[in-house]
Amino acid sequence: NDEAKKEAEKLWKNNKSEDEIKERLERAGISPDEAEQWLQELR
């Protein structure tokens, strides 16, 4: 999970869309709710 979150953070810094980041997190096995929460922390 931490690995996926690091990846999400990297994508965020590269200005990827939130949808793309969420999709990537969900593919890594993170629930949509958790993915949404993680994005809010990044904002």
Rank of each mutant, 00 (worst) to 15 (best):
D19I: 09
P32I: 06
S17E: 04
E9V: 04
E18S: 06
K13S: 09
Q40G: 05
E3F: 10
Q37D: 08
E18R: 04
A8F: 08
E9I: 07
A4F: 08
E20R: 02
A35L: 11
S31W: 03
A4Y: 09
Q37K: 13
D2G: 09
N15C: 15
A35F: 07
E18N: 05
K6M: 09
E3R: 10
S31Q: 07
K5Q: 03
D33K: 11
I21Y: 04
K5N: 01
D2C: 15
Q37Y: 04
D33A: 12
D33L: 11
E34R: 10
I21D: 00
N15Y: 03
E36M: 05
N14D: 15
R43P: 03
A35H: 03
P32W: 10
I30Q: 01
E34K: 09
Q40N: 12
L42V: 03
R24S: 12
E26R: 13
E23Q: 10
G29L: 02
K22W: 04
A28T: 03
K13Q: 14
L42F: 13
E41R: 10
K16D: 09
L39T: 00
E20H: 03
A28Q: 08
G29K: 02
D33P: 03
R43W: 05
D2Y: 11
E41K: 09
E41F: 06
E7V: 09
R43C: 07
E3L: 11
K16R: 07
K5V: 01
E7W: 13
Q40M: 07
Q40P: 01
R27I: 09
N1Y: 14
A35C: 04
N14L: 10
N14T: 12
R43A: 08
Q40T: 09
W38A: 02
W12R: 13
N14K: 08
P32E: 07
E41P: 00
N1D: 09
D33I: 10
R27H: 07
R24Y: 15
Q37V: 05
D19S: 11
E20T: 03
R27L: 13
E36V: 02
E7F: 10
D2A: 12
D33Y: 08
K10N: 13
E23D: 09
N15M: 07
E26Q: 12
K5W: 15
P32D: 08
R43Y: 05
W38L: 09
K16V: 15
L25D: 02
K5D: 02
Q37I: 07
N14M: 11
K16E: 12
N14A: 13
L39N: 00
S17V: 02
K6G: 04
A35G: 02
D33W: 11
L39I: 12
E34G: 02
R43S: 05
S17Y: 03
D19F: 10
N15V: 01
E34M: 14
E23P: 00
S17L: 04
E26W: 05
K13Y: 13
L11F: 04
L39D: 02
R27W: 06
A4E: 03
K13I: 11
K10M: 12
L11S: 07
W38H: 03
K13D: 14
E26T: 13
R27V: 07
R43I: 12
S31Y: 02
R27S: 10
E18V: 11
R43F: 09
L25H: 00
G29I: 01
R43K: 13
K10R: 13
A28C: 14
Q40E: 13
E18L: 11
N15A: 08
S17H: 04
R24I: 15
L42C: 10
E18P: 08
E20Y: 11
K13T: 09
K16L: 14
E18I: 12
D19A: 13
E20D: 05
E7Q: 06
K22T: 02
D2R: 11
P32H: 08
E26Y: 13
K6H: 04
Q40H: 11
W12V: 14
I30D: 02
A35I: 15
K6E: 07
S17G: 06
P32Q: 09
S31D: 08
N15G: 15
R24E: 09
L11G: 11
E23S: 10
W38S: 03
A35M: 08
R27N: 08
A4W: 15
P32V: 07
K6N: 05
I30M: 12
R24D: 06
L11W: 13
L39A: 01
D33Q: 13
E34A: 07
R24T: 13
L39G: 00
N14F: 01
K13W: 13
L39H: 00
N14P: 13
L42E: 01
I21L: 02
S31E: 05
W12S: 14
P32R: 12
K5P: 01
D33C: 14
W12N: 14
Q40F: 01
D2L: 13
Q37H: 06
L42A: 04
E9K: 08
D33R: 10
A28S: 07
E36L: 08
K13F: 11
A4S: 06
E20S: 03
A4M: 12
E9N: 03
S31F: 03
E36Q: 04
E20I: 06
E3I: 12
E3Q: 10
E3N: 10
E41V: 07
R27P: 03
K22E: 02
I30A: 04
K10D: 15
G29R: 00
Q40L: 06
K6P: 01
R43G: 05
K22L: 12
L39K: 00
A35Y: 09
W38N: 01
E36D: 09
A8K: 00
K13A: 13
E36C: 05
L25P: 00
S17N: 09
K5S: 04
L11I: 05
I30N: 02
K10T: 08
E7G: 04
A28E: 05
P32K: 12
Q40W: 03
K5T: 02
K10H: 11
A28N: 05
L25T: 01
D33G: 08
W38P: 00
A35W: 06
E26N: 08
W12H: 15
E20G: 00
R43H: 06
N1P: 13
E41T: 05
I21N: 01
L11N: 08
G29Y: 01
W12M: 13
K6T: 07
